[in-house]
């Protein structure tokens, strides 16, 4: 890790002003992606501004028909939250399937959504549910927020404060993990609203998390695994690497999507 300065602001405003004042700063939350990146010298910020304890980023609460999860909440607390388990059990299951028990004690939902790793879990739920990303400057709809590998609508210095999820949908999440890294090879979040279905795929796409609109249409007509039988995503859009070919992932997305639809109300993880 290159030399850097560590700063721990007391509140959101101080975090933003520390960012302004530094030359090449980075925010850090749970640090479970960023610290390994820094150790590998793949990034070299001169200052780390710690968001993890900011009071504005804490709390899980119901706001009318929304479920609002503070960006600084760790995966363990999202998985265990009675509000999340009641309103969106598949989201609680997703949170409980990230990494391992130690990682879940420290990694945060805001960090995952801000980083937008193409194999991360939370982006699938945020996009699948059409959640709203609340920042210290504005609210961003999920459809506008995710913009490709490790790329989001966040501007320089902008901080994710909370994720606001609609609660009026029945959801299912299915994930097929790489047995070594435990990241998703393909994972699918399905949200069934009264008037529409949304399907988001993570782990498989060249461009990060994406909506599978053909599956959405088919499921809106007939909500069953069989409705997906003749559908598949475009092979050219799939990641092709040593963990799996694009052809393999194209097939896997269909299998995992069917599994999500067959297991609504929870998260199913294999292997």
């Amino acid at each position: 890790m290159y030399e850097l300065r560590y700063r721990r602001p007391a509140d959101l405003a101080e975090a933003a002003s520390l960012f302004e004042a530094a030359e090449d700063p980075a925010y850090i939350s749970g640090g479970h992606t960023l610290l390994p990146t820094l150790k590998g010298r793949l990034a070299a910020p001169d200052a780390l501004i710690d968001l993890r304890r900011l009071p504005e980023l804490k709390g899980i609460r119901r706001e009318g028909d929304r479920l609002v999860v503070g960006a600084g909440e760790v995966h363990r607390d999202v998985a265990a939250s009675p509000d999340v388990r009641e309103a969106l059990p598949a989201l609680a299951g997703l949170a409980g399937s990230i990494g391992d028990v130690h990682v879940r004690n420290h990694g945060t939902i805001g960090g995952s959504v801000a980083n937008n790793d193409p194999a991360a879990d939370y982006p699938a739920a945020v996009l699948g549910l059409g959640a709203v990303v609340r920042t210290n400057r504005r609210e961003i709809a999920a459809d506008d927020y995710f913009q490709g590998l490790f790329t989001t609508a966040l501007e320089e210095g902008e901080i994710v404060v909370a994720l606001s999820f609609p609660t009026g949908a029945e959801c299912g999440y299915a994930k097929f993990r790489n047995p070594a890294s435990r990241y998703a090879m393909a994972a699918v979040f399905v949200a069934r609203f009264a008037d529409a279905v949304r399907v988001a795929v993570t782990g498989a796409g060249n461009d990060g998390v994406f909506r599978w609109t053909a599956a959405e249409k088919a499921l809106a007509t007939s909500f069953s695994p069989e409705a997906l039988a003749d559908l598949s995503v475009a092979e050219a859009d799939m990641i092709d690497d040593l963990h799996g070919s694009a052809e393999y992932r194209r097939h896997l997305v269909s299998v995992i999507a069917e599994r999500a639809v067959a297991n609504m109300g929870r998260a199913v993880v294999t292997p």
């Binding site: 560590y6 721990r8 850090i28 640090g31 479970h32 610290l35 390994p36 780390l48 710690d50 993890r52 028990v101 130690h102 990682v103 004690n105 420290h106």
Partner: peptide, 11 residues
């Protein structure tokens, strides 16, 4: 629990 290779002691 924490994997202590993945936290800055300053934090």
């Amino acid at each position: 629990t924490l994997k202590s290779c993945t936290a800055l002691v300053a934090s």
